[in-house]
Simulated assay, not measured.
Amino acid sequence: MRRGYVCDTVGGMTDDDEHPELAGYEPGSGASLSRPGVRRVLRIGVLIAVAALIIPGIIATVQMQIRTAQAACRIVVRTVDTSAIGAVARFEPAGPAGPSWYCYSRSFDGSELLRATLGLIPGLEPAPRPPHPAVQS
């Protein structure tokens, strides 16, 4: 038997003895967080906090994709169509290759011609390297 504990049965302790910090506690006393108004306010607060954490990341990601797609499209158009007056990069959810960023060259008359598919995450494939010349000895 432990010192300082009162036993109500032989070899056992009461619940109050096991958790003295809960002595006198009655469930349901005091203000409850289970009231509908309090729960609704807490849910709205949590939703606002989660949105405040997620939305800036989404905005930054979209802005980065727009800048990357525009830069990649300018490179493609300069390489493929030297007579073009501009390059246009657009995200199309239902394009020829599915949802993707597409690069168009713009002509002087305002027409656009599809030049490249930049992918769902815009970027360029690295250019193939020319084979190394054989070393002569």
Rank of each mutant, 00 (worst) to 15 (best):
M13V: 08
R3I: 04
P20C: 15
P126Y: 02
P99A: 15
L113C: 00
D8K: 06
Q65D: 07
T68G: 01
V6S: 14
A84Q: 01
A97R: 08
Q63D: 08
A23K: 12
T79L: 14
V50M: 12
E112W: 00
H132K: 11
L33V: 07
I54K: 06
A52T: 12
G24S: 11
G30K: 03
P126F: 00
F108R: 10
G30V: 03
Y102W: 05
T61V: 13
I85E: 05
V88M: 15
R35P: 00
Q63E: 12
A97C: 04
A23D: 10
V6Q: 15
T82F: 04
I54W: 11
A116G: 06
G86D: 14
P20A: 15
G110R: 07
P130S: 11
I85C: 00
P93V: 08
A116D: 08
L33F: 12
P93F: 04
V76I: 15
I121T: 06
G24A: 08
V62D: 09
R67T: 13
V50W: 03
C73S: 09
A127E: 08
D109G: 03
A31P: 13
R129W: 01
L113M: 10
P122K: 01
G119M: 01
V88Q: 12
T117G: 01
L113V: 12
P56F: 07
Y5N: 03
A94R: 08
L124M: 02
R74M: 10
A116Q: 04
L114C: 05
R106T: 07
E21T: 13
A23N: 11
P36N: 13
V88L: 15
I48M: 12
R35E: 07
V10E: 15
G110M: 04
Y5L: 10
L120D: 14
S105T: 03
P133V: 09
P36A: 14
V38D: 06
V46R: 07
L118R: 00
G30D: 00
G86P: 01
I44N: 05
P27S: 08
G4H: 03
L120F: 14
R35H: 07
I66R: 14
G98P: 04
V6I: 15
P122S: 02
D15V: 10
P128Q: 05
A84R: 00
R39W: 03
D81R: 06
R90K: 14
G24R: 09
G123T: 04
P130W: 10
A87T: 00
V77Y: 01
P130R: 11
E112K: 00
A116P: 03
A23T: 14
P56S: 11
H132E: 13
T82S: 13
P96H: 07
I75S: 08
V6H: 11
E26C: 11
G28H: 02
V135Q: 12
I121Y: 04
Q65L: 06
L118S: 00
T117K: 02
P36I: 06
P128K: 02
T68C: 05
A71P: 05
I44W: 03
A49W: 09
M13P: 00
L124V: 04
V77C: 07
I55H: 00
D17N: 10
R43I: 13
G45S: 02
A60T: 05
R74D: 13
W101M: 00
G11N: 14
R40G: 01
I44R: 10
E26T: 13
R43F: 04
